[in-house]
Computed example of a mutant assay.
Amino acid sequence: MATTLTSPSQAQGPETADTQPKPKNRNPMAAHPALWLFPIPALVLYIAFFVIPTIQGVFYAVTDWDGFSPTAQFVGLDNFTTILTSDELFRNALSNNIKFMLVVVIFQTIFSLALGVYLTKNSRSSVALRSLYFFPTILSSVSVAFIWKFVYDPNFGLINTVLGAVGLDRFQSAFLGNDNQAIYWVAITQVWFHVGQMMIIYVAGLQQIPQELYESAEIDGASRWQQFRYVTLPMVAPATAIVMAYTTVQSFKAFDLILGLGGNPPKGSLDILSTRIYAGFANSQFGYAAAESLIFMALIAAITWLQRRAVKASNPDV
């Protein structure tokens, strides 16, 4: 009688699969340990070029270091006290910078929103016009300064030449030569320079608005202005917050544009905080300029925070 031999695995039948150890399922959300190495280069650069210089700036701000001596004398808060109470040059630069910022933030936000609204559709003409308005942004600040220096030239500049040709000589101006108006003309240049860049942010925000909202508003009898006020403005509030914050920082960093239009050093009517701080370092007043830099940084942070609060108050969802 033949005997059939069976292996132990065959004898156990289908239950064998249940007795075998199962591989552990990895959590799909768990990051591989090696991925933690990727942020290290950026972190090193951040520490080396921001954290350490900031700490050094705080240290130098309470000294009278001239930038060359191996030692520096500790002066405490004297630099800050002088800046905030008796430094007329810093006060003048602060006043100019606030005027410059207000003009740039208000008009750049308005014009970029208007361009974004009219160029939202991805038609050929809209794309072409977006490219045209964005073009100045890719130019260097020095190039823009030289272009507008020609435009503002009181003798043979473009504006005065055109005004004279059409018989409007009474509207001709010295532009940058007029101390009461100079900072505003530079602000207009800054708006022209970056309005296309902010327009792109608004276009991206406007294209995310569901069309059903406009259709519902139109069915309810809302006019174009009412649709813009009650649909468009609230929906682009996040984009507005970005534009205002970025424009504020830009207006305080218009260093090269000011030097290109006003010379080095610029005259008092064109002096802003960044050029005032630069003058301090150039005159070997490193400790004093470091104190001005800290006040400068705190001022930008405070203004940006206030803008954020204002936008959030008008639209709690931001």
Results as ranks from 00 to 15, higher is better:
Val142Leu: 12
Leu294His: 02
Gln285Trp: 07
Thr240Tyr: 02
Lys149His: 14
Leu139Trp: 04
Ala11Trp: 13
Thr63Val: 10
Ser251Asn: 06
Leu299Tyr: 01
Gln12Trp: 13
Gly177Pro: 02
Phe49Glu: 05
Tyr288Cys: 03
Met235Gly: 04
Tyr230Asp: 00
Ser86Ile: 14
Phe49Cys: 10
Ala128Gly: 08
Thr6Pro: 04
Asn283Met: 06
Ser123Ile: 03
Thr304Cys: 13
Glu218Ala: 14
Ser95Cys: 09
Asn25Trp: 10
Tyr230Glu: 00
Ala237Gly: 11
Gln10Met: 15
Thr54Ile: 05
Ala187Cys: 10
Ser173Thr: 06
Ser86Gly: 13
Val142Trp: 02
Phe150Asn: 11
Ser143Val: 15
Ile295Asn: 08
Phe90Leu: 11
Ser223Phe: 07
Gln226Cys: 07
Phe255His: 05
Trp305Arg: 10
Val195Met: 13
Val62Thr: 00
Ala282Ile: 09
Gly262Tyr: 01
Ala114Lys: 06
Gln211Ala: 02
Tyr246Arg: 12
Thr304Lys: 08
Glu218Val: 10
Pro41His: 09
Pro39Gly: 11
Gln108Ser: 14
Gln208Asn: 11
Tyr230Val: 00
Arg124Gly: 11
Phe252Ile: 08
Ser251Ile: 07
Ile188Ser: 11
Ile47Met: 11
Pro8Tyr: 10
Asp153Gly: 08
Phe156Leu: 14
Ala31Ser: 12
Met244Ala: 15
Trp225Thr: 04
Leu299Asn: 00
Lys267Gln: 13
Gln73Ile: 03
Val44Leu: 15
Gly157Ala: 05
Gln12Val: 12
Ala310Leu: 15
Gln108His: 13
Trp225Met: 06
Phe74Ser: 08
Ser314His: 12
Ile300Arg: 01
Ile200Asp: 12
Trp192Pro: 09
Thr85Ser: 02
Arg224Ile: 01
Asn178Ala: 02
Tyr60Leu: 09
Gly260Gln: 09
Gly76Trp: 02
Gln307Leu: 14
Gln211Leu: 05
Ala291Ser: 02
Ala11Pro: 08
Phe134Tyr: 14
Met199Cys: 04
Ala2Ile: 06
Gln226Asn: 09
Tyr246Pro: 11
Asn92Gly: 14
Phe156Gly: 10
Tyr230Met: 00
Val44Gln: 11
Ile303Gln: 01
Lys149Ser: 13
Asp78Trp: 02
Leu306Pro: 06
Leu113Glu: 02
Pro23Tyr: 03
Phe100Asn: 06
Ser314Ala: 15
Lys22Met: 06
Val186Gln: 07
Gln227Ile: 00
Phe135Met: 15
Asp271His: 07
Val44Arg: 12
Gln211Asn: 08
Leu168Asn: 06
Asp66Phe: 03
Leu94Cys: 05
Asn25Glu: 09
Ser141Gln: 09
Ser112Glu: 01
Ser274Arg: 03
Leu158Glu: 03
Thr161Ala: 13
Val44Cys: 13
Gln208Ser: 13
Tyr230Pro: 00
Ile188Arg: 07
Ile147Leu: 14
Thr161Tyr: 14
Val75Phe: 01
Ile138Phe: 13
Ala30Lys: 06
Val151Lys: 08
Phe193Cys: 03
Val127Asp: 12
Thr275Glu: 04
Val243Pro: 12
Ile258Phe: 05
Pro23Ser: 01
His194Ser: 15
Val127Pro: 03
Phe228Val: 06
Pro28Asn: 15
Ser143Ala: 15
Phe296Pro: 02
Gly280Glu: 04
Pro21Met: 09
Phe111Arg: 05
Phe255Ile: 09
Gly287Tyr: 14
Ile272Ala: 01
Met235Lys: 09
Ile147His: 12
Ala301Phe: 04
Leu273Ala: 01
